[in-house]
Amino acid sequence: MALTVIAGACLEGWRDCGDDVCPTSLTCVEDIKKGIHACVDPDEVNTCGNELVEVGEVCDDGNDKSGDGCSSDCLSAERCGDGVLEATRGEMCDCGADDFHPMDPRCNGKQNGADPSAYCSSNCTKAACGNGMVDDGEKCDTRVTVTTSCVDLRYDFGRPGCTAACDGLSPDPCGDWNWRAQETGTLSDLLSVWGTSNDDIFAVGDDGTIVHHDGQRWQTMESPTSEMLDAVWGSGPDNVFAVGYNGTILRYRSSMTRGSCTGA
């Protein structure tokens, strides 16, 4: 379709159209992307494929085909950053980039990856953690108050926080008043416990069992012995010793290297 743009003075049978004029039989239409005006047949106003990006359109390349950088309905530039969510292209969100502005109200007017609080990341594949909303795939958000009580996490008081990756609740703000049973991850008898802080505690016991607490949970550590271990002590978090039956001595370093020696 050829667009008609005619320059001239105000003559009878003509109307102003931007910096030019149009015959009264045609409609003056503005291209909101290019900022120009053109004369269009009334039947082609607000029609995808007329080569003019009109209100409600994201693009218009003069045809009704998809796959060429503008969808057949002119509502998508077919790329991340065009401000249109396209799940078929693997997008989880799209708040626009460059000349494309956010259309989704959840974007709060911020384009993809504009700052840490932006709703959508720059590659449209994951809504940003910390954007003030709990998005699909997230358990919480660092900028949203957690409503769960620490009591639900087997603590006595407090309100959990959110992990830095928004993938779970953090019990760091929680606390205990008294003794409380904990899951150790092992059925072996534990005979000794020692630690440097509330997020660095070791316990040892039968069959060479060693477990470690990182402030959130107990986890079994690889042990180089099956001998019973009945004591653990260290000079710091990177130098811990465990001793046990048959002269067993194990040493733990923060580099995760371990050694053992046996003797009478």
Rank of each mutant, 00 (worst) to 15 (best):
N112H: 11
T142K: 07
K33P: 03
D156N: 08
S121K: 10
G244H: 01
S149M: 01
N108H: 13
D176R: 15
D176Y: 15
M221G: 03
E138L: 06
P23F: 06
N63F: 02
A87G: 05
N239H: 15
E183Q: 11
V204G: 02
D135F: 09
D115C: 07
G81K: 01
S71G: 13
D60E: 07
A165I: 09
E54T: 04
P102A: 03
S72V: 01
S226P: 00
V151I: 12
V243M: 03
P116R: 05
R89A: 11
G185C: 03
C107S: 09
V55H: 14
S66C: 12
R143G: 07
T125D: 03
G132T: 02
I32K: 14
S188V: 05
A127N: 14
R143S: 11
G130S: 02
D60N: 12
T220G: 04
D199C: 07
P23T: 03
A264C: 05
C107W: 02
D104R: 00
R79K: 15
T186Y: 03
W218K: 00
K65R: 11
D82E: 08
R180Q: 15
D206F: 14
G62I: 01
A87H: 10
G109Q: 05
Q219S: 12
A231N: 09
V151D: 10
V151H: 13
V45Q: 05
F241W: 04
L52E: 09
A164K: 13
D99H: 11
C28K: 08
V151P: 04
V55T: 13
K33V: 15
T186R: 03
E44A: 12
Q219I: 14
V211C: 02
C93W: 08
L52Y: 08
V144C: 02
T196S: 04
L153M: 15
G208Y: 00
P102D: 02
V211L: 02
A264T: 14
G137P: 01
T145H: 08
P23L: 04
L11E: 13
L169S: 08
F202R: 00
D98F: 13
V151R: 14
A164G: 09
E183C: 03
R253P: 01
V53Y: 12
R159D: 07
S197P: 02
M1R: 09
C70I: 12
L169W: 09
M221D: 09
M92N: 08
D141M: 05
N112I: 09
N178V: 11
G195K: 01
C80Y: 11
S72F: 02
C120I: 08
S117R: 14
E183I: 11
G175W: 11
C22N: 04
T147W: 09
Y155D: 00
G49N: 01
A242F: 00
R159H: 12
D167K: 00
P116K: 08
D156C: 07
D115I: 02
D199E: 06
S260P: 01
A231W: 12
D238Q: 14
S117D: 09
M103L: 14
N178T: 15
I249Q: 04
Q219F: 02
N46A: 14
A128L: 15
C59W: 06
E183T: 06
R79W: 10
I201A: 02
G62H: 08
F157T: 14
W14D: 07
E51W: 13
M221Q: 12
K34T: 15
G205D: 06
N178H: 13
L3T: 12
C261K: 11
D141C: 05
D68Y: 05
A77G: 15
W14L: 10
V53K: 04
C120Y: 11
